[in-house]
Design a protein around this nucleic acid. Sequence first.
DNA 1: ACGGGTCCAACC
DNA 2: TGGTTGGAC
Length: 686
Amino acid sequence: MPVAKRETSDGRVIAHVDMDCFYVQVEQRKQPNLRGLPTAVIQYNSFKGGALIAVSYEARNFGVKRSMRGDEAKEVCPQIHLVQVPVARGKADLNSYRNAGSEVVSILSKKGRCERASIDEVYLDLTDAAETMLLEMPPEAREDIQEEVLNSHVLGLEIKEGSDAKEEVRKWFRRSDATYQDKLLACGAFIVADLRMQMLAKLASGMNKPAQQTVVPQSSVGGLLESLPIKKMRQLGGKLGSSLQSDLGCKTVGDLLQFSEEKLQQCYGINTGTWLWNIARGINGEQVEGRLLPKSHGSGKTFPGPQALRTLVSVQCWLNELCEELSERLQSDLNQNKRIAHTLTLHARAYKKGESDSHRKFPSKSCPLRYGTTKIQEDALTLFQAALREFLGFYNSKTHGSENNNWGVTSLSVSASKIVPIPSGTHSIAKYFGGQFPSSSSFNQPLGNAFEEAVPSSPSGSENCSGLISSELQQNYPEEDTEIKNPEACLHHQDPLCNLSRKADSLPKESSHESPAGNEDRTTESEPYRDLPAKDPTPLSSTPSLKTVEKKRTAGNNLKGSCSIMDFFNNYQNSQSSLEHKNVTNGHDVKTASSSGHPSTQIEQAAESCREEIDSNIGECSVPNMPQGRQAWDYNIDEIDHSVIDELPPEIQQEFQAWLRPHKRPNVPKSKRGSSITHYFLPDKK
DNA sequence: ACGGGTCCAACC
DNA sequence: TGGTTGGAC
C-alpha cells in the first residue's frame, strides 16, 4: 500500500492511498499459498492466455507487465501463477475486489474523511487526526518511532552518502525547528504507518511495493513539479497533457509557470486554465469529498471482433445477464446503504457493415429505473432497441430491419445512477424494498424520456407516454414468456440461437414495416391502459381489467413524477408546505401535482404506502433550507471577520471553507472564444 | 481486438 | 435542469 502524503495549499494533510496490484493481493488472500510468489490476475483465459490486469511485484521483477497476455507472461516468467478473475454470468465479476476495497475504506475512514476514488484508491484527509496527535504526542517528544515510519521517503530530504537513512528520517520527523505544517505532516506519517499495519493485517499479504510511504513537505513541492513530466501529472495523462506539450511546449509541470492564468484560460477554458495555473504552483484546493459509496453502478462487457453480437436475441441474452448483476448490486446497495437509484442507462458500441466509418456512434439511452430484475431487463432491452433504431437510421430500418446481419454490437453496458439515500427514519421503507418485488406490485410505466421525443405528449398530459417499441415488447414478450430461462446456453458459446427458436420467431420483426418517423407509435397510444400491469403475471392484454385501471388511478398520481419519496422531501425543502403537498399527493388531480421529475416507479408506489410514516418524519425536517433560513445566509462573504470562523460549528465552518475554495465558473461559449487566435490552441481540435 | 468500471466536464 | 457524450484513470 504505497501512500503519498501532501499538504494542500490550505494546509491540510492529505493521504493518497493507492493499493497497488490490488487484485493480486485479494487473490493472494484467497489463496495464501500464492503469497510472495510471482502472480498475476488475468481475465478471459481463451485468447492467448487471457489479459493481465494486475501483476505482483515479484512477477514484475521478471519483466511481466500489465497489458501482456497470459502467454507472454508465461514466456517471460514460466513459474508465474496466473489467477483468473472470477466469472459470473459469463462475465468478469469484480465483486470480491469491490468488497475488499470497502474493507480498506472502512479502516481508513476511522482516521479521517475518505473519498473513494476507485476500487483500490482512496483519498484521506488526516488533518484533524494529525492536529490531535500533535497536541497529545508531538513528533519531537517521540522516543519510539516505528520502522514503517522510518522507511518513509521524505521528498527533499537529502540522505548523504554513507549516512544512515533511517536515522536521517528519524531526525527529520523529530526536529523541533520544523514548521507547524511539517510537524502536522509528520503526525500524518505516523498515522498512515499505523493504518498500513492495519491494512497489512487485514489483507494479510506481503508488502510488495518498494516505496511504500512517501512524505511530501510543502517546501519540496516546487522542486518536485519542476521536473515532473507533464504526462505524469494526474489529469494530464491524456489529450490535455499532449496539447500542453505540443502547443505550449511544456515538458514538465514546472514549465507551465511561465504562462499567465489568462493565457492558460484562453487556451483551455476558464476552469481548466485556472486549474493548470494552480497545479503548476502546487495549489490544489479540492477538498477530500467525504464519500464512501459509489455514485453509480454499472455492469458491462465487450465483444471484440468476431464475438460481436449480431442478433437481437443474443443482445437480449447478454443484457439479461448484465441487468441481473446490476439488479443484484442495486439490491445490496438498498439493503446495506438504504439508497435508491433513479436512472437506468444503456451504453453500447456497434459497427455497421458496409459503412466506411464502421464504428459509428451508438447512442446511449436512459430512463427511470424500476426496481426488480425483470423490469430492469425489459427496460434495458427497450432502450437498446430504441438506440439501435437510431443507430441504423429510421429510414434504413424500413428496408433492412433490425434483425438483419448488417450490424454487430461490440460492447454492452448498463448502469444505474442518481443514487439517493432513503431519508433516515424511514427504514421500514427499506424493509419494504428489501425483498423481491412481486411482479404484481408493478405497474408498467415503461420508459419516459427515451420515447418522449418519438411520442409527443398529448395535450391532456399524456398519461401513457410509452411508444411502439415498448408496447411491442410487452405484446411479444408477455411476462414470464419473455425471460430467457437458460442464459448459459448463450454464455458458453456465444451462439445467439440459444434454444430460443420460439422466441426468436417472435422477435419484433415488425420493426421492419414501421413508419420511419415513428408516427405509428401514436396508434398504439389509443389503448390508454395497455401498459398497466396485470395484477397477475399473465400476459398483458389490450383490454385492461378493472383492477388494472383502478391501480392506475391510485398509483397514477405518481405517473407525473411528483410523488417519489425524494421528490416529496425535495419539494418540501423547496419551500412547499407539507400540507399543501400532502393534499396534492393524496388527491386525484394528477395535473396539479405535475411539475417535473420522473414518471412513476415502484418505489414511488411503495412510497405511497409509507406516506403516513414519512409525514410523521417530515415534521422533523430541518428548517434551514426553508426560505427564511436561506436569507440568514444572504450576506457578503467578504465582510466576515475570518477569525470568527473557528468558533463556528464544524458544519458551518465547512460551508465557509467551501466559499474560500476556487469556484468553478461556467465556461465561455465557443462563439466568444473562437473570435480570437486562441482557438488555435484549443485541445486537440484538428 | 487494453477489460470493466467510475467519475467528471462540457454540451445541448 | 437533465440527458448525452467524451475523456481520464
